[in-house]
Amino acid sequence: MNRTIIPGVIAMAAIVVASNILVQFLFGQWLTWGAFTYPVAFLVTDVMNRVYGVGPARKVVFAGFIVGVICSLIGTQIMGEFGPLVTLRIALGSGIAFLTAQLLDVAIFDRLREGAWWKAPLASTFIGSSVDTALFFSIAFSGALTFLEPANDVSWAGEALPLIGVGPVVPLWVSLAVADWLVKLSLALLALLPFRLIVKRLMARVA
């Protein structure tokens, strides 16, 4: 492995592990603590892309994916109050969403890298985060996909409630997805400052 990407791999692995642990703990009614750590993965990918290019960024993504798979396998063996901490649908949703969204982020960033410094990280993270949220929550909790794991009862996620407590009536999982998406978009904006600072420091070292 190229030494230049080792810090990126370590950072991505740490984020994935932390998010898999923190997703078990609720933050309010619609979120878990993992919602605040996972979006940092896009920051890591974008920094690697800007400083080292598409190839190294993809390697970091694949490393994070492998760590995520390992976390999911461990989670399936840990029994919680209602069964395994990680079900097949959650494992599928997590893996597919992560790999698809992160690789999309890399591709979009590369297309926009010649523009203003903030356009590539902002646009790639916005789009990647949106795809990530849509894929994960629909695969993991949508009633239309119960055939993926018939023995897993996710009827609780289909409970009809006002959107985030104030909007039109929708399935509970949609509110969870929207809350998660809003956090991702907010952190995408906040991440522009550390992105700028980290890239500037790393580019000085590379030069």
Rank of each mutant, 00 (worst) to 15 (best):
P121Y: 11
D110R: 14
T125S: 15
S94Y: 04
S124G: 11
A101Q: 11
P39Y: 09
W118R: 08
L99Y: 02
V106P: 10
F126Y: 15
L73H: 05
L112E: 09
T37D: 04
S124H: 13
Y52M: 12
P39W: 08
A63M: 02
I108G: 11
K59T: 12
Q29E: 13
L99W: 05
Y38L: 10
G28L: 03
G28N: 07
G75V: 04
V54I: 09
Y52W: 15
L85Y: 04
A120T: 14
A97F: 12
R58A: 00
F36A: 07
L103S: 11
E81S: 06
V47C: 10
A123T: 15
L135P: 13
L43W: 13
G64F: 04
C71E: 06
G128F: 05
I74V: 15
G95L: 12
L43V: 13
A91F: 12
I78K: 01
L92V: 10
S130Q: 11
D46M: 10
D105Q: 15
V40Q: 06
R58W: 01
T76M: 15
R113L: 01
F42E: 08
S142F: 04
S142R: 08
V106F: 13
F109N: 06
F141A: 00
S129C: 14
T87F: 00
I70P: 03
S129F: 10
D105M: 10
F25H: 07
V54S: 09
G128A: 09
G83D: 00
T37A: 12
V106G: 09
L92P: 06
P56N: 11
I70C: 05
E114A: 10
L85M: 04
G53N: 05
